[in-house]
């Protein structure tokens, strides 16, 4: 079964949003993770942190109302909520490294069976730098990877990452358009599966061993 990229990203963002709970301080990475903010369930109040120095980040700014003093970590114009606050980078990363951020949602190039993460460096090809990612995954209480299950048909969930690590043993949960996978001491446990695919189909595009949960459910979305 083929899920187009746009639809896939929507499925992922909606599902990740359900992982967040009331009162949490959450950091969303650039790109797909940013979309999670659009799907926070009603009644759940989450405060978003932006590593360029803000908590209480609101939605993208309306055209014509852009303020160069209020952008997200991707440089896009956003709003700040009335209860928000601004601060410098030392404070921003104090919040992150100090364990004050409840959850971070990031994209990945590769994740492996031990919860190792690679998302900043493709040697010889593309080295954007780690930015705040290394601090986020070390410091946030829960690390959620939001990514398409494969890249150009190739698995991204591997037995062992072969790209430089962002950090070792930090990933808690992997959400793709095909399923929800928890990283445990025993390995990767498939907890939810997209209702349009079979277990064999998800295994075929996952290099890592998948332990099928006894309580396997269809993915919410």
């Amino acid at each position: 079964m083929i899920i187009d990229e746009k639809k896939g990203k929507e499925i992922i963002a909606k599902r990740v949003a359900k992982e967040l709970s009331d009162g949490q301080l959450v950091n969303l990475g650039i790109g797909l993770p940013t979309k999670v903010a659009n799907y926070i369930p009603k009644g759940i109040n989450v405060t978003f942190q932006s590593e360029n120095g803000m908590v209480g980040m609101g939605k993208a700014c309306e055209s014509g109302k852009e303020d160069a003093n209020i952008t997200n970590a991707g440089g896009q114009y956003v709003n700040i909520l009335p209860q928000g606050a601004f601060f410098d980078s030392a404070m921003s990363f104090g919040l992150i490294r100090g364990g004050h951020v409840d959850a971070t949602v990031l994209g990945a190039l590769q994740v492996d069976e031990e919860g190792n993460l690679a998302n900043w460096n493709i040697p010889g090809k593309f080295i954007p730098g780690m930015g705040g990612a290394m601090d986020l995954v070390v410091g946030a209480k829960k690390v959620i990877i939001a990514m398409l299950h494969t890249a150009k048909g190739k698995p991204k969930i591997l037995k062992k990452c072969n790209l430089p690590f962002t950090a070792k043993k930090v990933v808690d949960l992997i959400v793709t358009e095909l399923g929800v996978i928890e990283v445990t001491d025993k390995g990767l446990v498939l907890k939810e599966i997209n209702k349009n695919i079979t277990i064999d189909e998800i295994k075929a595009v996952t290099e890592a061993e998948l332990i099928i949960s006894e309580n396997l459910k269809y993915m919410e979305g």
């Binding site: 980078s89 990363f93 490294r97 780690m130 930015g131 705040g132 601090d135 070390v138 410091g139």
Partner: peptide, 23 residues
Amino acid sequence: PQGTLIERIRAGGFGLGGVLTPT
């Protein structure tokens, strides 16, 4: 790493000999 970089600068400006970070 961003959080390390700002702490290295902070250490420089605050008279510290370095910082210990898990990052």
